[in-house]
């Protein structure tokens, strides 16, 4: 079975999952996974509990926010860049309004209350 390579960036406290590639405030890891692997598989490979990650990007496309993780089954491709942020990061709505999102997240936002027009989706969740 063929393999894919994912360029993983872990920020802040998540850098501790960097399998020896920590550089203080971040870690940059090369992850080799089975073809067809998902974000869920990647998190399992890195041993990151999914609730510990917040804002997530796959190849520059937003795929998850704290409290909103529709990307677990998103299938990764060879050469993808995946970035996971700690829960103390933020991306206010006005600074991501119109930025690229994966289809699953765009759909989840559209289906949610206020079409996703919030800063956080966790504790103050009005989107559930």
């Amino acid at each position: 079975m063929s393999e894919i390579v994912v360029d993983v960036w872990l920020y802040g406290g998540l850098s501790k999952y960097g399998r020896g590639a920590e550089q203080g405030s971040f870690a940059n890891v090369e992850a080799r996974l089975r073809e067809g692997s998902t974000i869920g598989d990647l998190l399992a490979f890195l041993k990151i509990p999914s609730w510990e990650r917040g804002i997530t990007f796959i190849d520059g496309q937003l795929s998850a926010m704290p409290g909103l993780q529709p990307d677990m089954d998103h299938i990764l491709s060879d050469g993808d860049r995946a970035a996971f942020f700690h829960l103390n990061s933020m991306w206010p709505f006005q600074y991501r309004h119109g930025a690229a999102m994966i289809r699953e997240l765009a759909e989840a936002m559209q289906a949610g209350k206020d079409r996703g027009l919030h800063h956080s989706y966790g504790e103050h969740e009005s989107n559930a």
Binding site: F57, A83, N88, M90, Y95, R96, A99, A100
Partner: peptide, 12 residues
Amino acid sequence: AVLINILNEAGG
């Protein structure tokens, strides 16, 4: 400055 890594990953 917490936004530096975020905007960088977003390609923005």
